[in-house]
Design a protein around this nucleic acid. Structure first.
Lengths: 159, 159
DNA sequence: TTAATAATGATAATCATTATCATTTAATTT
DNA sequence: AAATTAAATGATAATGATTATCATTATTAA
């Protein structure tokens, strides 16, 4: 068991109670790496944990987000997606997203992170000062048409 | 009337029918400048246009978004916001958003746009090539705690 | 082990958005 | 200007995502 007492340091200290469902949800994200919506988490959990309720999934996603363990995204399909925060897990690379406005596919990319990070750091400092805003995270989304939709088909909304 | 025949050039050519509600919605955005959700548009419209239906608002926001006239955002409160696209209206400056995770307030900022645009342009070129992705727009969101919430209060979620 | 309380599962309620359908309206054609 | 045609509208039902409620259960600290 990954989350037994001895290993509950750092971020994991923020978790007040180590419930079965909370551990199971964290494990889902450790296995999957990418972003998952509440219903996707729910479906994956039900295999090993058939009695879990969808409300528990929602509550824990929100809880883990508030603790800084999951990052929360909305890519434009009217539902939230979550992924492990890079601050929480070393293995998670800093990355951003390409979102296809035609089919909804989301691609993670890790290119240009060095350049981006330098600029962002500078911006955060200046924006914090100018607006008195304590910045905690940022998201950079690119919207467009993916490779498949380019050849395939009927294109939809633009940014 | 702002949208009468003689002036329907450029982007406005994309609009198939100039209905009363469509014009009224565009006018709301011209007056307000900032981002508005469907219900906020609906409320503003009802003053001068008491019979408009909420479905018409949703349909037109979606329509104008697909025509490239409105930009669409989701800041994390589970509902979409729209604003006039800078491509559509010269007066709209390129800008991004600071979102307070405590109270939900959204601040537009226009700082660092030169530096950002240079980097973004470079990224778009490289990402387009690497992923075969035709990029149409981008959004940069900073999440954190605003000035008021910093002194005021009970802090909430982090990014 | 027990006490205190956070978390759970079931489900109702809410909120944002989309679908349906009969009617109206904008633009085009006569 | 009247007729035509298809897009758009308003009312409202339906859907989908998320949140609230509440009695019960499970985790932690004492």
């Amino acid at each position: 068991m990954r989350y037994r007492r001895g290993f509950r340091g750092g971020f994991l200290k923020r978790i007040s109670r180590w419930t079965k469902s909370r551990m199971a949800i964290l494990d889902v994200f450790r296995r999957v790496k990418g972003h998952l919506s509440a219903d996707e988490v729910f479906l994956r959990l039900r295999k090993n944990y058939p009695n879990i309720g969808i409300a528990t999934v929602y509550r824990n996603l929100d809880y883990l987000h508030k603790k800084g363990i999951l990052s929360r995204f909305q890519f434009g399909n009217n539902k939230a997606s979550y992924e492990l925060s890079e601050k929480f897990l070393k293995g998670v690379q800093h990355h951003h997203h390409l979102i296809c406005t035609n089919c909804g596919k989301v691609i993670d990319y890790t290119d240009f992170i060095k350049e981006e990070t330098d600029l962002i750091r500078e911006m955060e400092k200046a924006l914090s000062k100018k607006y008195g805003f304590k910045i905690q995270s940022h998201q950079l989304h690119f919207y467009g048409i993916c490779k498949d939709c380019m050849k395939g088909g009927d294109q939809n909304a633009v940014g």
